[in-house]
Design a protein around this nucleic acid. Structure first.
Lengths: 194, 194
DNA sequence: ACCTGAACACCGTTCAAGT
DNA sequence: ACCTGAACACCGTTCAAGT
């Protein structure tokens, strides 16, 4: 049921409406169903009308990716335990990505998001690392490893069998524990003196 | 320079020739240039002729992915230091993937390869883990983490800026050291008693 | 069995024209 | 400024026909 439009009224497209429609389409039908044409159909405009509000499909996808990161829960700034804070923020990122599994291949194809939300999350992680005494190039190393691990794990956890020798697919709960194991290994390594 | 064909002679396509041509095209022009039509042009046949030797483009890509894994150097089976062996096999995988950067997005999109070479590599890693006293579900956890980390890191290391706060792109050497750092953290965690 | 020409059912994007 | 119809330059894949 499309919202009705009175005669002569403009479609009233905005960047925000296009973005919202894209996220709905992704959530309902996956990222293969997200075409400029299907998006236009849903918004009741012709395909090329989208280009008044979006530079390209790639730019739209970048906006969608950054948008979803706004859902990540960040720890309070007066956190007492930096290590627990790091665990929490990465675990929340993992949860958000899992909840939007269809987006994960796009994160990978685009090598993560690079919009304002991604930037803010990165800075929070760097702050927590500094509280642990990790800074400079070593902090950037740690951040890179944490991002790679979190996005990568989500990608492999969602969809499809992931290892050839997986006779039976691990359950969602098992995968969540698996994610936590690796994350702890990494955080221990990062916090270790050398 | 296409190999000349005498009049009346058949193209003589085989699965192997299609696969080789696909890898050449990938190496020369990247994976966006790999279309069934460009592949057909290179092989001097019509596009639909490929379907006599390949089930679909996806199946072809799966074959390419597994094929490249044959280049990974595996440690001798009489390895004395299991931990060093694990480091070596993952580092070699990393190198092979880096050398075929164009394939990495495909590995991610397909969640790793699942052909015979991928299977063999997985089993070697499990054997090395067993030598370290890690087996059962914990070994499968470890394997999953190692695969995710290695493919994920390569994906983020190749191409594009990867973090918003990267003022200047890290050099290839820095990224290689970064990969090693994270890998050591993981291997330490995996080997730790608990 | 293997290849061809032609076509089907799509894509993202651009362009000229309307309001 | 924003939208439309039409078109451009592609895709992967299928089908009927030839050898």
């Amino acid at each position: 049921m499309q919202p009705l439009r009175s005669l002569g009224q403009r479609a009233g497209l905005t960047h925000a409406r296009v973005l919202a429609a894209a996220r709905e389409l992704l959530a309902e039908s996956g990222f293969e169903a997200l075409t400029m044409r299907s998006l236009a159909l849903r918004l009741d405009v012709s395909p090329n009308a989208l280009y008044s509000h979006v530079e390209s499909k790639t730019a739209l996808i970048d906006d969608v990716l950054d948008d979803v990161l706004s859902e990540v829960k960040t720890p309070e700034s007066d956190v007492e335990d930096a290590s627990a804070g790091l665990h929490a923020i990465m675990a929340s990122t993992h949860e958000v990505l899992l909840a939007h599994a269809d987006l994960v291949p796009l994160f990978l194809a685009r090598q993560g998001a690079r919009g304002p939300n991604a930037q803010e999350l990165g800075e929070i992680v760097l702050t927590l690392l500094a509280l642990e005494g990790v800074d400079g190039p070593r902090a950037r190393e740690a951040l890179r490893v944490l991002i790679v691990y979190t996005i990568g794990f989500t990608a492999f956890a969602t969809q499809a069998p992931l290892m050839p020798m997986d006779q039976q697919q691990p359950s969602t709960g098992e995968l969540a524990m698996n994610f936590d194991s690796g994350l702890r290994w990494l955080l221990n390594g990062i916090a270790a003196p050398n």
